[in-house]
Amino acid sequence: MYDVIGIWAGAFFTLAIYSFLYKENPIYRLAEHLVVGISLGYGIAVTYSNVLKPRLIDPVNSGGHWILVIPGLMGFLYITRFFPRISWLSRYPIALLMGTSMGVAFPLTMKAAVLRQLESAIIPLYREGMSWDVVLGSVIMLLGTLAALIYFFFSKPHKGPFFGFGSRIGIWVIMLGFGATFGFTVMGRISLLIGRVQFLLSDWLHLIK
C-alpha cells in the first residue's frame, strides 16, 4: 500500500512537471521549490547519521577519542559566519580545507590531466597489421591535439604557417569534437525522458513490462 501511494504521488509530480510544457503553473512552481527544501533537508539528516554521529559524536561520547573535538570545533567555526563581528573565524576551516585540498590535488592532477595525456598523445602512428582507418585516426589524433592546442593558444596571433594554419585545422577538429558531444547530448536528453515514460507506463500504469 505504501509503495502504491508512493508511485501515485510520483506520477502526480511527474505529470505536474510536464504540465509546464503547456504552460507555467502553480503546481510546477510548488514542485520546483519542494525539491530544493527536501534535498537539503535530506542532506542534513544523512550528514548527521553517516558522518557526525559515527565519526564524531559516538567516539567522543564513548570516551577515549577526545582528540576528535579538534575537527569538531574547527567545523563549528563555520557557524561564526552568521555573526558579523566574529565571522572572520569561519575562514579558518575554509582555509584548512582549501589549502590542503589544493596541495593534495596538485601532484595527482598533474599526473592525471597533464603528464599522462602528453605521454599518450604521441603514439606509434603505424604498426604492421594496422588498418588504414586506425592509421588515419592516429595521425588525426596526434596532429589534431596539436592543432587544437594551437587554437587555444591566444598569446600569439593566429597568423603564419604554424599558428595560422595550425589554428585553422584546430577549429575543424574542435568542431568535430563538439559535433560528437552535441549528438551525445541529444541522446542523453532523450534517455532522461525515456526514464520517466518507463516510470509512468510501467511502474504506474503497468501497461508495459
Binding site: M98, G99, M102, G103, A105, F106, T109, M110, A112, A113, V114, Q117, L118, A121, L136, G137, S138, I140, M141, L142, L143, G144, T145, A147, A148, L149, Y151, F152, G170, V173, I174, L176, G177, F178, G179, A180, T181
Partner: peptide, 29 residues
C-alpha cells in the same frame, strides 16, 4: 569520430583545463 578527432579536441581541452587547475591551485596556496 569519437575515438580520434573527438579525442584530439577533448585532450586539448583537458590539457588546457589541467594547466588552468594547476595554476589556480598554486595561486590559492
Amino acid at each position: 569520430i569519437l575515438r580520434y578527432p573527438n579525442l584530439a579536441a577533448k585532450r586539448a581541452i583537458m590539457l588546457g583545463v589541467g594547466f588552468g587547475m594547476l595554476a589556480t591551485n598554486l595561486k590559492i596556496i
